[in-house]
Each structure stands twice: as C-alpha cells, then as structure tokens.
Write a protein that binds this DNA or RNA. Structure first.
Length: 815
DNA sequence: AGCACGCCGACT
DNA sequence: GTCGGCGTGCTC
C-alpha cells in the first residue's frame, strides 16, 4: 500500500496520513498538491510531504481524492525548509503551508466539479445522491462543494463524489488549480465589415445627428488607419474627458465599432532602457574581494557598511555575477516601502527579469509571481519575508538587506520565525550564498561574524570620499540649570537648527514616540485614561483630537473633565512627536515644518506627497518618529537632532540600547550625504551614557564590544538562547493557572535557573486577552537541542490538559 | 483552526 | 417549552 503524509492548511501540528489510490500511484510526487477529505465533509488542498509504505496504526487512512499538479509545486529544498522551520521554531507545518501559499493555490471547499465530457451516464445504477449530483451538473456545468451541501447530506458528499469519479462520470475541474485569470485589457476597433464595405458616407450620414459619436468614430478610424498594427486602448479614448463611454456604447450598439480584449500581464514590466553599473570605489572593491573569497570558501557574509557606503553597489555587482552564471537571486527587505530605490536601480538593468513579492499584493498578483518564478521567468526576486516561500529553482544568492530590522520577525503573525536567521538555512538548502547587509548589524549577527560563522566585511567610509557625520552631545540638565532652554530645546540646539536653515539646508528631528502626550492625568484624583481592551494608558493625539490605544487601535474622545472626580485639572504628561512638532513650529514660525509618523501618513499617498515635498526642498524641518530613519535619502539634510534621546533607552527590553544605537545611527545617516558636513545633535540628561559616548566615536567595533560585554554579563543572547512562551485567555485566572501549571511542567524537565516566570506580561491585557509569559534562558551549543526537545515535551504535556486547551499558547524561539 | 456535540440560561 | 451561549473533543 502506498501512503502519503499530507500537510493541511490548518493550525494543527504534523501531517496526516492518506492512502494513495492505485491509479494515482505512478503520478504522485512529494511537493504536489492533492485534494483530500478531512473531518467527513470538508475538502482541503494539501501538500504531499512524504511518500511511504508504513500502514498507520490506530486509525484508518482515507483516500486522496485527486492530484492537482503535474509537477511538484513545492520544490524539494522548500519542503526541507518548511520542515526545518517547523522543528526549529516549534510550529506546525500547516501554519507554514498557510503562510507560504497564496490563498487561491490552496482552495478548500471552493473546489469545482464538472461532468466528464462524453460521459454516458447509466442512471439505472446510481443511488439518489449520485443522481442528484449528475443532474445538477447537467444543468450548471460547474458546481462547488458548498453548493452540493444544498441537496446532498453533508456526510455523503465525499462518498458520492468519489463514487462518481470512480465511475468516470465526473472530474475535478482543473481550473480551480489556477483560479486566477490573466488580466485583460479592452481595445477598440472599427468593425471589419464597415471598413471592407467602404460605405463610410452612409455611416457618417447616419451619425449626422450625433455629433459626438461621429467625432469619436472618426477618431477611432483615423487612429486605426494611421497605425494599422497598433491596437487602440479603450481607456485612451476617454482619457481627456472629451468623450464618454456612453458615446462608445452607442456606436457599438449601431454595430459600427467593437471592443476586444487582449491578455495583459498583471505585473507592469519595465520597458525602458537598460543601463550599466558605476565603478566601485577602492573600499568597495576591497569589500567585494573579501566577499568573493568568503563565497569561495563556502562561507556566508555579514556586510557591515556604514550609511552611504554604497552597499547597494556591491549587491548589484554580486547580482550581476550571479545572473551571468545563470543562477537566480533573492533580495530580501524588511518592508515594502524600502523597495523603491533598489527596484529603480535593478529595473534599468534587468527589466522583465525582475520580480517583486510582498504582503500587499493581491492574491492574483501573488499567483502570477509564483507562476513566473516556477517557470524561471523571473531571475531576480525582491521581496519581504514571504518571498522565502516562492518555488525557486537554481538559486545562487540571497541578500538580506537591513538585516537588523525587527520587521524580519514580526511578533503578530504566525509562524514566528526570523527571516534573517531562516535565510541562512534557506541558502544552504538551496546551495546559495547569503549576504546579510546592514549599517547597524544586529548584535547576534555581529557575534556570528566574530565567531567566524559568518565572514565579517566592513566598509567604514562613505562612498565618494564623503565624510561621516560628526556628533555633538548636549547636556540638557546643564542647559536647564543655566536657563538656556525653551521647552524641550536647548538654546544650543535651536542655534544649530537656525544655522542649518540659514545655509538653506534641511533639518530632521527624531522623536520616537507617537501622539501628543503619553498620558492625560487628573491632577486632583490621579485618574488616567486606560484602554478598555488593553491594560495600557491611552495616548493623546492632538491633531486628531482623540485618545488612541497604540496596541489595539481603539479610539476615544479626549475627556474635558476628569470622568471620575469631574475636576477640570487635567494634565498632559510624556512628550510625543506631535508636541515636538508643535514646539518646532512655534520656535521657527517662518519655516515649513512637517511631521512624519504613522498617524500623519495614514492617508493615501501622504508618504509620497511628503517625500516629494522634501525632495523639492519645500520642507525645511521634518519632525518624525523612527519612520524618518528609513529610506529617506535627500541631498540637503545637514542636521539631524534628537532632542529627547533618553526616551529610547529606558524601555524594559534587553535590546533597548541596541535599538537606540541602531535608530540613532540610521537616522544620522540621513545627514550630509553629499556635502560630508552632516551633523548629529543628541540632547540628553545622561551625556555620559555609554551608548551616546560610543556612537560619537564612529568606530563600530567599540560599541559592539560594549554590547557583547553587557550581554555576556547578564546572560543574554547571543550567549544564551531565549525562548518565550506566551499564554493568552479572556479569563485572567484561567491563564494564570495554566501558566503556573506549564511553568511547573517545564521545571520538571529543565534546570531551575532556565525557567523564569510565569509572569504577567508587560501589557497584562491586550485586546481583551490576559497575557502571561514564561521566559526560558537556555544554554547555547549541544545542550540546546536537548533542552528544546524538553520544551516540546512540556508543551505537549500541557496540551493534554483539556481545561487549558482554550488557552492560546505561542512559542517564540530566539526571542 | 474549525466544526459538531452537549449542557445550562433568557426568551417568543 | 426552545434558541443559542461557549466549553470540550476530534480530525488521517
């Protein structure tokens, strides 16, 4: 007997065993999609994970209904990658499958059936259900599984379908495999017979009483005779608003013109010229030689290039080499918005060979990219973390740009994997080399490089002999004491800003906190406004004049009096970016001051509009959150100011200092990109703080040494491995008890010092779910695998307690 | 996950 | 009397 392990798109762990019917045995391969029944009535598209001959014990395997692919849609390397992800991140294969596939490639009961052409049905020998179904198909041709429920009892559906398939009366409509249709574009032409008969005069006479129609007709005719081979796009006719579609429709109704459709690829491809790459600088050449040597030795690379050092140049060279060798490239970015520049550069060179894949594509567009990748039509793929799951073949190079970015591991979407770490394994499974690139590498990657697991390549100078920006730290406490302060700005800082503006340059001000004020507090009774869904105070947004919860998005109006004691003595505390923006506007009333944060960029094209405004130098001062640290490369920004730099440090997170360093360094990269006179001003109450001191030295090795020392001292990654287990439930005592129990199970298997907690999460309630956390601090190296296994055992043991099954548990490996 | 089954409250 | 709430169990 031939059996298959099938992955289903459900959040269930492992795979399910099905029997392969004899007639499908020669056809079936691992990585193909199949239709299988599950739970009696439902049909799912599963993926064949493994084929074997071991008869399952304890249950009867069901039959696979049919195979959807002629060739495996998931390459072998991908299946291995899924399997690795599932083991390493302790998540189900089903979750990965769900995440990996565009939804129209994994249809469920939307599956369609049809009568087999030429089938001669012998109604005599059919049962009632079978007869109903055949009759329905005779009327409707295509029918979907949900529709069938209307006339066949649910439990009989699969049996009926199977029996009719066996009898060769019906089949699965293969169109479901490709639910998507290529987009078609409407074109117009004058009807052939009108042109042939040449009775134009007659036509024009007929149109004498409809001037617009006549004009439109003549326009189409003219275009058509001028360029006979050139199709006329329907949308072009109405472009200037002179004609309306009703005019066209009238002509069509009179059988004078007609429209027809041509298939058009959904993905707009670049049609313009293709250009070469500029030559590398000495430093870049050196870096490239190092990378080549590392690749030669089978090693992956951490490319640490300071901002504006031209990492992209090096990427471009490596990409070109790869293409020359007939290998394909995957270029990963943390988020879509950063893709613009790299796409523009690659597009000019590779045109149609370039693909783009990310979360925001529609399902059809995703399938289109899938198809093209599979057919090897796209040679270079730029994408976010989802792009790791495309059916690549022949991959030669993986680039992970901005590798330190936390968007590579979003906390809210399962499966919870880190795309940066995963891409190293991914590369090795595909036999491709990997470059991790960043101006501010993560401490973890730096450590790997130091341990020689990655080749460390540093470019510590900007491209084209541009000097690195200089730093100045302002002691805000001192400034306050000597009364040289207006609000959150010291006189010294306002002078710097003034100076930059006088020289007709631009200023950026970073304040990484949304809203206007962090808290609105009643001075009389101490009341603060909590979100009703979360255990979090609501932030006051002055621009929108409302209170917002930054965790669940709930909004409320700003209280005018204290809801508790009706005092009007409400005080705003905690400075947000809106307030900084307001201050700057008052300090520099004659300047154009703009704000960039998620709240102000919510409108469509708001980002694009502001981008263009800054580029055109209409904006003098840009105030923003961390948003301004990414992707804004302007030539005339000379000063970057961080008025309240301390706010970044005091976050309860062992990575807070690393984040602060990365953010400050990234944003400082915006200054003096061309002139080399960029200046960064950091205002702080703690000028002696190591992070600030080390940043100003412009010597990355120093600050990474500091970070590594700190991490070692307090037993944090990369010297240990953290795993976080989060438990959520609507009822607080239920999660509380569940997490205490899980904690005790973990302590049974793991040494006491490894298990921390359970504790209430920092945000004890989120979206009406109470959250508890258990932190596991595990040793690195060989022991780790054993310990992780124990964690898996503990979780399994925990899951056996039925009372706790409603408690949602998430495991974050390498937290 | 999702879906059915089963056991208790507020309703035409 | 029932409709429907969600706690529990199971899926090859």
């Amino acid at each position: 007997m031939q059996y298959a392990q099938i992955i289903l798109p459900l959040n269930l762990k492992g795979s399910f065993t099905y029997t392969v019917p004899e007639e499908l045995v020669p056809q079936i391969q691992e990585g193909m999609r199949v239709l299988v029944p599950f739970r009696g009535k439902k049909i799912y598209t599963g993926v064949v994970f493994e084929l074997h001959h071991n008869t399952p014990e304890g249950f009867l395997a069901k039959d696979i209904i049919s195979i959807l692919d002629e060739q495996p849609i998931v390459p072998e390397a991908q299946l291995k990658f899924w399997s690795w992800l599932s083991d390493y991140y302790l998540c189900g294969l089903g979750e990965i499958y769900r995440f990996a596939f565009p939804s129209s490639l994994k249809l469920e009961s939307e599956t369609y059936l049809k009568l087999k052409p030429n089938a001669i049905v012998d109604f005599e020998n059919l049962d009632v259900n079978e007869m109903y179904l055949v009759q329905a198909l005779e009327v409707r041709q295509l029918i979907n599984l949900t529709d069938i429920e209307a006339f066949i009892p649910k439990k009989d559906i699969i049996r009926t379908i199977n029996s009719l398939i066996d009898l060769q009366y019906i089949e699965i409509d293969e169109k479901i495999a490709e639910k998507y249709k290529a987009k078609e574009v409407a074109y117009v032409k004058v009807r052939d017979e009108i042109i042939q008969d040449m009775n134009l005069m007659e036509v024009l006479l007929k149109l004498n009483r409809a001037a617009k129609q006549k004009e439109l007709f003549l326009m189409i005719l003219e275009k058509q005779t001028e360029n006979p081979g050139q199709p006329i796009r329907k949308s072009d006719l109405f472009e200037d608003g002179f004609f309306a579609s009703s005019h066209f429709k009238a002509l069509a109704d009179k059988n004078l013109v007609e429209e027809y459709y041509l298939r058009k690829d959904r993905l707009e491809s670049y049609q313009g010229d293709i250009e070469g790459i500029e030559e590398l600088s000495e430093a870049q050449k050196k870096a490239k030689t190092d990378i080549d040597a590392a690749f030669e030795a089978g090693k992956n690379v951490l490319l640490h290039g300071v901002t504006s050092s031209g990492k992209t140049h090096i990427y471009l060279e490596k990409i070109e080499e790869c293409i020359q060798q007939d290998k394909n490239v995957l270029f990963l970015l943390p988020e879509t918005s950063l893709a613009k520049q790299i796409i523009q550069r690659l597009e000019k060179k590779y045109g149609r060979l370039l693909g783009f894949y990310h979360q925001k594509l529609t399902d059809f567009e995703r399938v289109e990219v899938w198809r093209k990748v599979r057919q090897n039509e796209l040679r270079i793929l730029i994408g976010t973390r989802n792009a790791l799951f495309l059916p690549f073949q022949n991959l030669g190079l993986v680039i992970v740009d901005e590798e330190h970015d936390s968007a590579y591991r979003p906390r809210e979407v399962s499966p919870y994997f880190n795309a940066r770490d995963a891409s190293l394994v991914f590369g090795s499974l595909y036999g491709a080399r990997v470059i991790l690139g960043s101006a501010t590498p993560s401490v973890e990657s730096y450590y790997l490089a130091k341990k020689d697991k990655l080749k460390y390549v540093l470019i510590n100078e900007r491209f084209g002999n541009v000097k690195l920006p200089s730093y100045e730290i302002i002691n805000f406490k001192e400034a306050q004491e000597s009364k040289k302060v207006t609000g959150n700005f010291s006189l010294k800082l306002t002078d710097e800003i003034k100076k930059t503006l006088d020289e007709h340059n631009q200023v950026m001000i970073l304040h990484n906190r949304r809203g206007y004020a962090n808290v609105v507090e009643c001075e009389t009774c101490g009341y603060v406004n909590y979100c009703s869904n979360c255990d979090v105070v609501m932030t006051y947004h002055k621009a929108a004049n409302e209170m917002k919860c930054h965790y669940c998005g709930q909004r409320a109006s700003k209280p005018r009096v204290c809801p508790k004691c009706h005092s009007e003595n409400l005080n705003e505390r905690g400075v947000g970016v809106e307030q900084i923006h307001e201050e700057v506007t008052k300090l520099f009333p004659d300047q154009e001051v703009d704000r960039m944060d998620v709240d102000s960029m919510r409108k469509k094209f708001a980002y694009e509009k502001l981008y263009e405004k800054i580029e055109a130098r209409e904006t003098d001062i840009l105030v923003g959150t961390q948003m301004i640290s990414k992707g804004l490369d302007f030539d005339h920004v000379e000063l970057v100011a961080i008025p309240k730099a301390d706010s970044m440090l005091y976050v309860q997170d062992f990575r807070a200092e690393e984040r602060a360093y990365q953010l400050i360094t990234q944003v400082s990269g915006r200054a003096g990109r061309v002139s080399g006179n960029g200046k960064i001003v950091i205002q702080t109450f703690n000028p002696e703080h190591s992070v600030f001191q080390l940043i100003t030295m412009n010597d990355p090795s120093k600050i990474y040494e500091y970070f590594l020392d700190e991490r070692k001292k307090f037993h944090y990654p990369p010297f240990t491995r953290l795993m976080m287990i989060e438990l959520k439930h609507r009822k607080e005592d239920r999660v509380n008890r569940a997490s205490l129990f899980l904690g005790s199970v973990l302590r049974k298997y793991l040494p006491e010092e490894c298990v921390l907690g359970p504790e209430r999460a920092q945000i004890a309630k989120l979206n009406n779910l109470y959250q508890f956390q258990i932190m596991l601090k595990l040793p690195r190296g060989k022991k780790y695998e054993k310990f992780k296994e124990m964690v898996a055992v503990s979780i399994q043991e925990f899951n056996e307690i039925t009372a706790y099954q409603s408690v949602k548990t998430d495991v974050f490996v390498d937290y």
